[in-house]
Every structure is written in structure tokens, then in C-alpha cells.
Nucleic acid binder design. Structure first.
Lengths: 185, 185
DNA sequence: CCACAAAAAGAATGTCGATTCTTCTTGTGG
DNA sequence: CCACAAGAAGAATCGACATTCTTTTTGTGG
């Protein structure tokens, strides 16, 4: 059965999704046309539709991509042997923000308010991030501050909530402040 | 010159802008068509275009409307004789969040990432709100905690920043969690 | 190397929606 | 109360853009 090998297929999907993220970051979710993504990816309409059902599907892929990337950064700290203190954790997360991805992230929030599929992605990713923050803070309380594990887990909750909120606010700030790149056309 | 009297003209503009806000909250900035706003306002295309240059103009009006409403609530506390403590202030602001307006607010953030006109509105309103929070916190420090005015103004800055961030995060949370109303059509 | 099915290209299609245009109505100054 | 310019209505226009279709190319299993 002469299909593309799975690895190759994934590469194409990624190539398309990454082009989409760049376009979205530049022009926004709705003002980006398929033609823009075609130009950015160097592929063709036929090819894109062979890999994604439609534009909504692409928007979802982009949302997952951006949110997953932010979750990935966080995951590293959660797994660390010497977890950073909350203030330090927040500072590092903020330092790791990429303006282009921040823009797409914030656009995704807006889209989530009326698009159930994107909403689910945002809620899921947010929950996952909050859980990782919780692990990270718990680890710090236990390993650095020498709290009891059970008690640490409990007191970590409001701290994680706070760090998450401050991080999101910073993301918003970055997304809005970062200079708007002009459209090529 | 038989024009509409200014008051009447403002009424029409408000009628249209309010209809637009309802539509945007329901379906999002871009998925709302002029036809939707026509239906919601009970007016006609011709009438709407007599009051707003185009759809972008309407989006800006809606953004101003929603953000101004949130600033208004805040202004009341800033002017109060016995300003609430930061925690209490935050709690009240959160309690005053309206889900529909929260949705349009978050959509506005997304739009601000790529639309300079909306970006300016968001930045301006955010700055204004932060300043009011600052006044409010300063008032509390001086009147309730009996700090020196000069020193109070300085220590109010990071507190105001924090309250703002937590408020924005809560707004996001409300906007995303609030049930998506189904489109009428 | 071959055959061939799937993938890529690019043109063609069809819909949707913003904006404009024409016509009818209404409020206002005299 | 009149006349008339501006306001409102609704039909018509015009372009943009997602998606599909047809043709060409290419990768894969034998």
C-alpha cells in the first residue's frame, strides 16, 4: 500500500501546523486565509486538505501546538530534583515566553469563548498546566522547605493557582504589547 | 438643517453598539455578521452604516463599551472614602464580572494582538484601570493603614499590578468557562 | 526497476457576507 | 402645517475565501 510512511506524514502535518501558527501570530485566526498558509508553508491547497479536514481543524491543531509548547517548558521544572521557589518558577516561565506564541495563545483564548472545540483544548491544557504547577510547588515545599507531603499538596493549591494567574496575565501583556508585524501582502 | 438631534443620534449609536456586544458575546467578533447585528438591533443595513463607518468601527465601539463598563465599576471604589483592602477589592471586582461581557473582553484581547486600533483601546483601558487600582490601593494604605502618602503611592504599585493580574486571570476563567450560548439560526 | 495508488498542485466553484445604491419615510426648522 | 434634507429600509453588488475537482507527480512495496 503505497502511502506516505507515518513519519513522513507527521512531518507534513507539523510543517503545515507550524506555518499556520506563524500566520495566525501575524494576522490573527480569522484574518489568516488558507492562501496565506499555502504561501507560508510552500505547499498547495490540495496538500493541506489532504492533511487537515478544514480550517477549523487547523485552528485546533495550532491551539494544541502552542499550548503544548508552553506546557512542555513547565513539565521540565516539575520533574526537576530541586524545584524552584514559586517566585523563581514564575520568573522563569515569564522569561520563556515567546511573543509570537503568546499572541496565538491569547487569540486562542478569544476563540475559546465561542468555539467549543477550542474551548475544550484550552480548558484541558490549562488544567494540565495547573496540575504541573501544583506538582512543582509541592516538590519545592517538600524538598526545599521540608513540609510534610500531605500538607504540602494542600498548601500548594492556592500557590499554584496564583502562579498560573500571574503567568497568564503576563502572557496577555506580552501578546498585546509585542509589536504587530505588518502583513507581507 | 433637519438632522437628528444629537441626543437622538447618540441613542441610535448606543442601540447599535449594545446589539453588537450581545452578538459578539454570543458568536465572537468574526463570526458575527452585519446581518446578525441587523437582526439583533431591529434596524437595517443602511441605518447601521449611517452611524458606523464599517464593521471594524463597530468592533472598536464594542471594545470601548465593554472595557469602559469594567473601568466604571472600578472607578466607584477608587473614589470611596473607606477604600477596601486589596483582597476585598479583588473579591468585589470578581463578583461584579458579567459572563457575557467577560467573553467580549477576552475576544477583544485576542483581536488586540493583530489589530492596532483595538490594541490601542485595550492598552489605554488597561492603563486606566491599573491607575485606578493604584489610587484605590493608595487610598487604603493611607486612610486605613495610616501609611505616609508618598510611601503609600510607591508600595501601592506592585500591589495594584498584582490585583490587576489576578482580576484578568479571573476574567479569562469566567469567559472560557461560561456556557456557550447556541446560535439562534 | 515497475506499477500504481496516494499525495501534491493549481484551477474552478459556490457561498457568504460586507458594503453600496436606490427608494421610501420621518423628523425638524421655518 | 410645509418642504425638504437626512435617516432608514432593503435589494443589489462585488469580492474574498474555503473547499472541491482534475490533472500531474512521486514515493513505496514487490
Amino acid at each position: 500500500m503505497p502511502r506516505l510512511t507515518d513519519a513522513r506524514k507527521e512531518l507534513r502535518r507539523a510543517q503545515i501546523a507550524e506555518a499556520a501558527v506563524r500566520c495566525f501570530g501575524r494576522n490573527g485566526l480569522e484574518r489568516t486565509s488558507i492562501a496565506d498558509i499555502i504561501a507560508e508553508s510552500g505547499l498547495s491547497a490540495g496538500s493541506i486538505y489532504a492533511h487537515y479536514r478544514n480550517k477549523a481543524d487547523l485552528v485546533q491543531a495550532a491551539a494544541r501546538e502552542v499550548l503544548a509548547e508552553r506546557a512542555r517548558v513547565l513539565g521540565e521544572y516539575a520533574a526537576s530534583d530541586t524545584p524552584p521557589a514559586p517566585d523563581e518558577l514564575l520568573a522563569r516561565l515569564i522569561a520563556a515566553i515567546d511573543p509570537a506564541e503568546a499572541r496565538v495563545g491569547v487569540q486562542t483564548w478569544g476563540e475559546a469563548t465561542t468555539n467549543p472545540a477550542v474551548r475544550d483544548i484550552v480548558v484541558d491544557m490549562t488544567d494540565r498546566m495547573r496540575a504541573m504547577l501544583h506538582d512543582c510547588v509541592t516538590g519545592w515545599l517538600v524538598k526545599v522547605e521540608h513540609h510534610e507531603p500531605a500538607e504540602a499538596r494542600e498548601s500548594a493549591t492556592p500557590i499554584a493557582h496564583r502562579v498560573m494567574a500571574l503567568y497568564q496575565a503576563e502572557l496577555l501583556y506580552t501578546a498585546v504589547q509585542s509589536p504587530t508585524e505588518e502583513t507581507a501582502s
